[in-house]
Nucleic acid binder design. Structure first.
Lengths: 206, 206
DNA sequence: GTTTGTGAAACGATTCACAGCT
DNA sequence: AGCTGTGAATCGTTTCACAAAC
């Protein structure tokens, strides 16, 4: 499949969210214009984004909401559930495990790890915090699709290397550090400090 | 000042992080090549990014680490502290308040709000959770620079409107929804569901 | 008449490549 | 000799504009 820009995929995910709202309201069809208004983009952008994957609309009419929802779910690979491991049971890690949004969208957290003896063994949302030393032995038996790294900066690269060696193909990194992984592994980073500095820049230069 | 691309600002923030490491190690100078290797980009990109703001290097030599740190801090507006209000004392909101990284980088959380009577009045990291009804009366007396929205999706737009009306010029939104604000207000969103769907897409299309 | 789908044009960001300084 | 700073070239993304479908 042709290479699709990250920005396009992100917008598709947004469109899907809006379409789900429209579906709930019982709206039958939607135009690229309406979708664009909702997402802060242009109708041409919406049509171009969709056109990479096919022709889902009817000229003069727009898009069938249920059909486009179905197609976008398919494109984004949301027809299945993903098994997720969280590494790090600190503030953000445990907040993520408790967060309902994950499971709701098909991402099931199946294990959480930490290296702090005070945390290891304690219960967390139906799971038990495991010793990160058991990462390999746990994930070999019960592989996961996605690893979420929520460790301090110093530990993040080491964990990334270990989960990569285990064959995990997707990482979501919350550690405030640049983590490098082999080409065949996809990694997305959420870097709070960086977002704040972008705001700081914007506040400063006006 | 000329419009600088968001991607450029984000890289500057990364460079700063690396330079701080170099500084701690006592490294005196660094080349664009070294900085690029550390950040997963190219030396031309590093030089171009910096060139928007001036000429900070010495040909044949590279960049003075302490000087470039100073310049980047200045460019990013990190010479001051920012007052931050967090709206929403749920899982993620309270994790943010407890997170040390904020204050370390000059972002001081001065108030946290919620609408849940069970949470209102309870202590959190030296603060007391306030009733979100008191948002206006609190922030008029003690204005903040940045509001962090950590409410459920339904409440996010309303909160954004209220803080915008209070003159807050920067928002960081964690609610899984597209929030719209007037042009003169800068907003950055961290959307977990969206990041997961980008991973899902990448896992599906390989 | 309305709205899609899409080549072509415009725009923006990255990479190249080299002159100029140390 | 080494490395920066920067115009020029390239590459990628967004916007335009219109023919085709309904």
């Amino acid at each position: 499949m042709r290479k699709i820009a990250d920005s396009t995929v992100r917008r598709l995910s947004l469109y899907l969210r809006f379409l789900e709202e429209f579906e709930q309201q019982g709206t039958a069809t939607v135009s690229s214009e309406e979708l664009a208004a909702r997402g802060g983009t242009t109708s041409a952008q919406v049509r171009k984004d969709l056109s990479f994957f096919g022709s889902f609309g009817k000229r003069g009419l727009g898009y069938s909401v249920p059909e486009l929802v179905r197609r976008l779910r398919e494109i984004l690979g949301l027809g299945r559930t993903y098994r997720v491991a969280v590494i790090g049971a600190g503030k953000i890690g445990s907040a993520l495990v408790r967060y309902r949004g994950f499971r709701q969208r098909g991402f099931e957290i199946v294990a959480i790890f930490d290296n702090d003896p005070l945390k290891i063994g304690s219960p967390l949302e139906g799971l038990v915090v495991r010793d990160v030393k058991q990462l390999e032995q746990t994930l070999i038996g019960e592989p996961v699709d996605i690893a979420v790294i929520v460790t301090p900066a110093e530990a993040a690269q080491g964990i990334a290397d270990r989960v990569a060696a285990l064959g995990v193909k997707a990482l979501l990194n919350f550690a405030p550090i640049q983590v490098s992984v082999p080409d065949d592994i996809v990694i997305k980073s959420v870097n709070l400090a960086l977002e704040l500095e972008v705001l700081s820049y914007a506040l400063t230069n006006r």
